[in-house]
Lab assay of single mutants.
Amino acid sequence: SAVVMEEGSPGEVPVLVEPPGLEDVEAALGMDRRTDAYSRSSSVSSQEEKSLHAEELVGRGIPIERVVSSEGGRPSVDLSFQPSQPLSKSSSSPELQTLQDILGDPGDKADVGRLSPEVKARSQSGTLDGESAAWSASGEDSRGQPEGPLPSSSPRSPSGLRPRGYTISDSAPSRRGKRVERDALKSRATASNAEKVPGINPSFVFLQLYHSPFFGDESNKPILLPNESQSFERSVQLLDQIPSYDTHKIAVLYVGEGQSNSELAILSNEHGSYRYTEFLTGLGRLIELKDCQPDKVYLGGLDVCGEDGQFTYCWHDDIMQAVFHIATLMPTKDVDKHRCDKKRHLGNDFVSIVYNDSGEDFKLGTIKGQFNFVHVIVTPLDYECNLVSLQCRKDMEGLVDTSVAKIVSDRNLPFVARQMALHANMASQVHHSRSNPTDIYPSKWIARLRHIKRLRQRICEEAAYSNPSLPLVHPPSHSKAPAQTPAEPTPGYEVGQRKRLISSVEDFTEFV
């Protein structure tokens, strides 16, 4: 048969007729292969192709491409040299491709048809291009793949890379869960390890502090508590009631339409708007009261037996805890006409967050109470924005700035309102402590230090009264110190430094 060459192609190359033996071998191979691939376009007849790359030819070592076609129900084999250009295909004639002069020997084609199974398996396991790669995943090629499931790999992101949580363990979102698992493993320790309690022994800490320079003076030496005195035992138990972190309780009120001037209507609300609910979820963490331990979680007086509701929101960081007394989460009882059960919590909070959804101005004093010092007013606006402002009593104007209003988005509203309420509550605590000038409020841990110092002074006084020969370590507060001759004046800087060093040991009130 003659071949018409394309323009620009090399000279004529004689194409030899395939021997009958080659056709029989390739026909047997075509019957084993699956003929249901995917359909081509209507211009080209339905056909199945599979590209198999052999590394070497037997005796020649030339890479070839073998295409199996099922045109007219008769499979045909096409061998081509890759750099050459194939002729145009037609549905009426068999596929013809040019070969190099080196394939002119018909014996070479017979060798190609009689490829060993080793070469076929190696060509099938190679990388296939384009559409033949999808075909190689079918059941027909499963014989050339190794048996057994593939090893499982770690989760992959859409980009093909490992997620960040699997790369950096410290930033993994499941870090707290692993800590819980470690605690569970520790709890399952053997009885021999049960006595080993991690941490620092208080006796060891005391020993280090006792021999430090801070205890060089007799006034700073630790003293032993009497065991037989019940009054001192009660004082030590009272110390446990003062937490070592700051605590805040903040009221949250929802004002519906037409309720801006009605205290009873505001306290009777059992739910609010959708934006109000989203605002609550951002204030803190939802907790169930019956599962809380009052000595570990500050509840601000809420009952854990269901008297004040089942849930509330709280927030904490390293040095403070805040609980929100939310009116809509507290039960509304029919027998309580004046809502006294709610007001006994909300009316005693220094700061209230008022979500004013009424469309009218909310005035300070609508919720009557002796300790309502500051109101954080949240007014929802259009386009997911809110107006946040402050209202306070006249005696609080020096501590709280009420002249600045803020426009905040719904997303950042819980954070801004919480921070403003916490700052206002700190100012309210300082303002409330002014009624007792001898006990200015600095912080909870300073209050613990003052309680310890008062307890020490009482013990020293009782020891001096029981044994008059012992001198008083600290003179009583009601006694007057003996007159001392004025010492020589020293520079102001040295006096300030000495006073600062003494105050650092005794108390921190002056620095606050």
Rank of each mutant, 00 (worst) to 15 (best):
Y254L: 00
P476Q: 14
S477K: 12
V354N: 00
T312H: 10
A251W: 03
E462H: 06
I407G: 02
A265Q: 09
A481I: 08
D382K: 02
S428Q: 04
H478Y: 09
S466P: 15
D317G: 03
D395G: 08
T328D: 03
Q241Y: 07
A463F: 15
P489S: 12
Q419L: 12
L390G: 02
T328N: 03
D382P: 09
K343T: 13
S479T: 08
A322V: 14
R498Q: 13
S435R: 12
I266W: 03
G272F: 02
S352R: 03
A483Q: 11
T379C: 07
R448H: 10
P226M: 14
L302K: 13
A251Y: 03
Q241I: 05
T485L: 12
T490L: 10
E397V: 10
E278V: 06
Q391C: 07
K296D: 15
L283A: 00
N436F: 06
Q293I: 10
K499V: 09
P222C: 09
Q429G: 05
P294T: 12
N425V: 07
L302Y: 14
T490K: 09
V374Y: 04
S466W: 11
Q259E: 03
P482L: 09
Q484V: 13
R234P: 10
K368I: 06
R285Q: 15
A483F: 08
N227W: 06
I223Q: 07
D240C: 04
I242E: 12
I223Y: 10
A483P: 09
S469H: 14
F415H: 03
L299D: 15
F362K: 01
T328M: 01
P294N: 13
T438M: 06
H375I: 10
I440H: 11
G301W: 03
R275I: 00
R411N: 08
T509E: 08
L225R: 10
G492R: 08
G272Y: 02
T312K: 05
N436K: 08
D395C: 12
D361M: 05
E397A: 07
R418W: 04
L239M: 06
N227D: 14
L364E: 15
M420Y: 04
G272D: 02
S262V: 03
F350T: 03
D217Y: 13
K333D: 10
L289C: 11
P437V: 06
I223R: 05
L472P: 15
Q419A: 04
C392Y: 06
C314P: 04
W445I: 05
E233A: 11
T438Y: 07
L329Q: 06
E218Y: 09
I459P: 11
D401K: 04
K296P: 14
G365C: 09
N356Q: 01
R498N: 14
Q370Y: 13
S428P: 01
C292S: 09
V236K: 13
V505R: 15
D217M: 15
E228H: 07
Q321Y: 13
A322T: 14
A424M: 09
R448F: 06
V404E: 07
S469K: 06
S273C: 03
A424T: 04
K343Q: 11
L267G: 04
G496I: 09
L390S: 03
R498M: 13
Y465R: 12
V378S: 01
L422F: 08
K337R: 10
H248N: 05
K333F: 14
Q429D: 03
E218G: 08
E494C: 10
L267V: 04
P471E: 14
E228K: 07
L346S: 05
I353Y: 00
L286S: 06
L501R: 11
L239K: 09
D295P: 09
P476S: 15
H345G: 05
I223G: 11
P414H: 01
E307T: 09
V378T: 02
L346D: 06
E228L: 07
T402L: 07
P491I: 09
G496A: 10
C385D: 14
F350H: 04
Q419E: 14
F415E: 04
T277G: 11
S273H: 02
N467S: 13
S229P: 09
D439P: 07
P475I: 13
T312A: 12
S262K: 06
G492F: 06
S219D: 15
R498H: 13
V408R: 01
S443Y: 07
I266P: 03
K480I: 11
Q310S: 09
D318P: 14
K406V: 15
F415L: 07
P486Q: 12
P243A: 08
L283P: 00
G369C: 11
V505T: 13
I353P: 00
S389G: 09
Q429Y: 08
E218V: 09
V323N: 07
Y274E: 06
P489I: 09
H316K: 15
P486C: 07
V378I: 14
S389M: 12
L381K: 03
V297L: 09
L264K: 14
Y274N: 06
V351Q: 00
G306I: 05
Q237S: 11
S409H: 05
H432F: 15
S435Y: 11
T277F: 15
L329W: 04
T366P: 04
L413D: 00
E263N: 03
G347W: 15
S219Q: 14
E228Y: 08
Y254E: 01
T247R: 10
K368V: 07
R234G: 11
V297M: 13
E462S: 08
L302H: 14
V416A: 03
R500V: 12
L501C: 10
